[in-house]
Design a protein around this nucleic acid. Structure first.
Lengths: 155, 155
DNA sequence: TATAATTGTGGGTAATAGTGGGTAATTGTC
DNA sequence: GACAATTACCCACTATTACCCACAATTATA
């Protein structure tokens, strides 16, 4: 059974300085790299944001990718699209991380960012993009009701 | 259990100079030749790119090839197709490698290249070719969703 | 409420990473 | 053996990153 130690939630806003550094919420630091060597993995999210995984969580994903066959073009491509954005990183003495410029562009990050705890990972959003994504959602929609029901989500 | 020391990920862009030299990402150098003699193996990829293996990883592949029978024409051919592109190489004092002209042509490499960490190896791509390959991928595609589901890849 | 500890932000400097080119050594060819 | 072509080795320069220190703001503690 999966342990519940590394679960993230909550939302925080931080500035991104001229060197591409952003603070990690103090509450997340322990869960993000429990093994005290301060390492974790930043990568591209499926939505227009970044995802940050604890190292062991990312290794779990990599292990599954290794089971795919390198002989099938589709599977090679699938692996590549996931792995090529993943960058191991550490925080500095102040608990900040430096986000690679490639990833800054991809997530459209400039001066500020919103950090969201998202169960097994952390999300980093451009505040505007997060808002517009949220605006698309309509929770009165039947689609959402059925999603909740099917998955027995009783709020 | 396989060790996790030699796992590659992330994407970097570098120039290829007039001598066919290209830089190896500093983050990869240690994993690429842990035994401090700076040796590794460059070869042709199955996609239109080059693959670079740590020496021991390549030796593992060679060991498997040795188990094939030299008596069967098909197997002789199979071995030949894999082995004949593999070139041992070292980096220079600055951490660059000189790519043989044959392999430069095969991977269609000119002025710039993108280097991708790909689990047990490194890929070297012509930026344009990589982009067109990537354009084929759509993670909302049913094919990819089923790939992820079947292999229990939970991002 | 005062004080101490932690958290978040900014910036300077040293070290490392990346790029280009010259020259010597090696290789292959005639 | 002489020559050209290629490769290996060395040095120099620039850009980027890592590391360090300082300080304000917030939170915890007495």
């Amino acid at each position: 059974m999966a342990s519940r130690t590394n679960t993230f939630s909550g939302q925080y806003q931080y500035s991104i300085d001229s060197k591409g550094r952003i603070n990690v919420p103090a509450k997340f630091r322990q869960s993000l790299s429990p093994d005290s060597d301060d390492t974790f993995v930043i990568t591209r999210g499926l939505d227009p944001c970044l995802w940050i995984y604890p190292l062991e969580e990312w290794e779990r994903i990599e292990d599954n990718l290794r089971n795919l066959s390198f002989l099938r073009p589709k599977e090679r491509q699938f692996i590549r699209q996931i792995v090529r954005w993943a960058t191991p990183a550490k925080y500095d003495k102040q608990g900040r991380i430096t986000i690679p410029s490639t990833l800054l562009e991809i997530a459209d990050l400039q001066d500020n960012a919103i950090i969201i705890g998202y169960l097994n990972k952390i999300e980093v959003w451009n505040p505007d993009n997060l808002e517009s994504e949220a605006a698309e959602v309509d929770f009165s929609d039947e689609e959402y009701e059925s999603l909740a029901t099917q998955n027995q989500i009783r709020l």
